[in-house]
């Protein structure tokens, strides 16, 4: 008899201690993200697909100094520089990147390029779904990396997602 009672008590105690976690979590905020049904939420410092930024006037910040490609440990950045002309002002400096390719087959998202950049032109965005069936698709040209052209008031206070190349739910870091 005593052993039956003891068994019941033990079972109840075990259930209680087990459900203690369940009930405690029930009243806590949810941390699981519903990716891919819902967009993931990134910290600002997340290192995703690069974004080549523009300045307040909408000109490209990159002056093609090649420091990012020099800093790159996986040697995945390829640049060609050209002269800005009076008719065609691409960047604020004397020169701009006429070709700017990042090979995402090789990129390890270490962020050294962002640190090396003297003009804060290259930054990490939050785009991360880069998988492709074709490796050549993973070589991103400047057109895909460049931030969208915005008017001055939008960049200052407006939606940061506007400045991303293919707006999902990122915010520029």
């Amino acid at each position: 008899m005593a052993s039956i009672l003891g068994g019941i008590v033990e079972t109840v105690a075990a259930l209680a201690s087990g459900f203690k976690v369940t009930f405690r979590q029930m009243f806590r905020p949810t941390v699981t993200e519903n990716y891919p049904d819902e967009a993931p939420n990134f910290q600002n410092r997340f290192r995703g697909l690069h974004v080549l930024q523009r300045d307040e006037a909408g000109l490209e910040k990159c002056v093609a100094c090649f420091l990012c490609s020099a800093a790159c440990p996986s040697n995945c950045i390829y640049i060609e520089a050209a002269d800005n002309t009076a008719e065609q002002q691409i960047s604020a400096g004397e020169r701009y990147a006429s070709v700017y390719n990042i090979d995402y087959n090789r990129c390890i998202f270490c962020g050294y390029c962002v640190e090396a950049c003297p003009t804060d032109a290259i930054t990490h965005g939050h785009e991360f779904e880069l998988a492709s069936y074709n490796v050549t698709d993973l070589i991103y040209r400047k057109e895909r990396l460049l931030a969208q052209k915005t008017t001055t008031d939008q960049t200052a206070a407006g939606d940061p997602a506007l400045s991303m190349p293919s707006g999902r739910n990122q915010s520029a870091s």
Binding site: V63, A64, C65, G93, E94, R95, P118, T119
Partner: peptide, 9 residues
């Protein structure tokens, strides 16, 4: 201080 755009850099 335009070393990044200077060819001599």
């Amino acid at each position: 201080l335009d070393c990044p755009v200077c060819d001599k850099g």
